[in-house]
Design a binder for these strands. Structure first.
Lengths: 186, 186
DNA sequence: CGGATTAGACCGAACGATCGGTAAAGTCAA
DNA sequence: TTGACTTTACCGATCGTTCGGTCTAATCCG
């Protein structure tokens, strides 16, 4: 996930960082123009739908990234332990070792129904993926569902608390505890 | 926590609901004027510091509310089980049974250092309060600290996921599991 | 080949609307 | 009459957005 400026993906990567840090309403087109190096009008060439379409595109990019780095491990073949480790490493990188917030959180603040729906779909896919992983490790169905939900809750919560406390290690501890305990049969 | 319009606290309660739902940047003075029934200039009579001071006042109100309904139970006398039940009931009410977001989350998005500091102080106080409760229930110090942190993470995370999934029961389940397990010695 | 045409990326300047914020006159209770 | 409070009218700045146009590179035609 590098950051070439000129390509469309490079633009979206910059936008992703801005949105996740300041929220949708907290990012102005002036700021977007600044970080992308493109004039306001140029941005409307790439995103005729304006700021809203930019946000949608960023959400789509994040969904694609999840598909490639998380769901591929969650749903894929291989030992559950190895798959879990891959997923946690991917999250750890995406969230900057606990220093960056989750795009889903800030996008969920928007009133637009489409944004809410995208967030919901991704959350559902996440829970389902973790549920699959727990099932593959031998957990009974209801327990797997509970664990999956609890894991997503812990990840999201630790990001919030890490940002609030300005202590990224809260997130790191949660990741580590998931790595240790998520698959363990009690 | 009722909502008389005219008094200062009534104004702040309306503001609290707006801020927690739309975020600081998502709430305009026009909207604030609308929900409070006060003209723009009247708002600046009560809050000479403008929108920023309004946000600070809301944070202070929330801090006071925590003091009266959460910390008084967390730090106070009484059986740990009863104190825990009071705190969880207070949270449940404040968060609308999982339908409302946390003010701290949205305020943590602001760039202003003062806002970040307030959020940080409250989070610290929350963790410390839960830590005290676990200590009183007989947990060893390091375990108490871990539990407290995990509890706050679970509450915050469940609010995020509940909003994201549009499923408030995620929050309710976390509250219930805390009520069952938080004090239990393993 | 060379000249005209086209399509896409990009930008400066400006749009109307709304932003947060203010000055001054008026209202009303004490 | 004083001080708390509201109303009306307004400010400059910035918001997201659009218009008109330039530059470049590929494409097409002769």
């Amino acid at each position: 996930m590098s950051g070439e400026r000129s390509t469309r993906e490079g633009i979206l990567l910059n936008l992703l960082e801005e949105f996740r840090e300041c929220g949708f309403d907290g990012v102005s087109l002036a700021r977007i123009s600044e970080v992308t190096g493109l004039g306001r009008a140029s941005l409307y060439h790439h995103f005729p739908g304006g700021k809203g379409e930019m946000a949608e595109a960023v959400m789509a990019l994040a969904a694609d990234w999840l598909e490639d780095h998380v769901f591929v491990s969650l749903d894929g073949p291989g030992e559950p332990e190895a798959r879990l480790a891959e997923v946690l490493a991917a999250f750890n990188a995406f969230y900057g070792e606990g220093t960056k917030s989750c795009l889903l959180d800030v996008m969920a603040l928007r009133n637009q129904p489409g944004a809410r729906a995208s967030v919901k779909r991704i959350f559902q896919r996440l829970v389902h993926g973790f549920e699959r992983l727990a099932l593959d490790a031998g957990h009974p169905p209801e327990a797997a569902r509970q664990r999956a939900e609890a894991a997503i809750v812990a990840i999201q919560g630790s990001l919030i608390v890490a940002r609030g406390l300005e202590a990224p290690d809260v997130f790191l501890r949660v990741i580590e505890s998931l790595r240790r305990d998520y698959l363990r049969i009690v």
